[in-house]
Amino acid sequence: MTTAASSATGLVNGFFEWFGNLGIFSWQVFRAAVTPPFEWRELIRQLDEVGSKSFPLVVMAGSAIGVIISLEARYSLSRFGAKSMFPATLVYSVIQVMGPIITGLVVSGRVGAGIGAELASMKVTEQIDAIEASAINPYRLLAATRILACILMLPLLTLATDACALLTGWFAQTLVEPLSFHQFIQDGFKGSTFSAFMPQTFKTAVYGLIIGLIACFQGMRTRGGAEGVGRAATNSVVLASLFLILADVVLVKFILVVFP
């Protein structure tokens, strides 16, 4: 009983300590990011890294999601005799709901783990100390560039996911009931302006912030050899995915209120 209680307080303390440290870390990164010198070269390298690592994955995930939603939508819509709603349903499900979150989770798995492991191994082999010893701010060189790359790339990757999902979704449908892609798109976006879809796509920048921040934080605070590196990579993915979904609750509500 008492051990359970004390381990519970330990957990709560650990939780608040983690958040406190994350806050301090964020502040240090922010301060480093907004003051010169700016690490343009490293930023470009990281944009390329995030983009090229994630692109094939989001293409595959998006394509699969498109087919799944297409199959599900056809089945349920025909049960309610609302088959003409198919394009709009597909467009809505992909762009408003599935595209952003699937992209976020895929990138968090690939890039989150990558950044977490990379920075953790640099930390335990004293490479981050070496950067600091060379009078270079590691928050600016390593963390700020990676976080910014995630923030910038996530919306673009989400657009790629959406495009692939719409394409395969339409393709799966047209095998059963031929429908030109042009017609499909026209029906799908009928009655909704393009700007209605913008907030859902650009909210993924917040996902990018969460993924980059947590992965850099977990990586740069790593201790204890190869085991620590593995732990940092795992924790980066688990925590980033978890916070991403939690943040989505808030973001969805926020977007509904601000962009009714």
Partner: peptide
């Protein structure tokens, strides 16, 4: 100079 060199790998 770090004890284990700490080169950027």
């Amino acid at each position: 100079l770090f004890q284990h060199a700490a080169l950027y790998d």
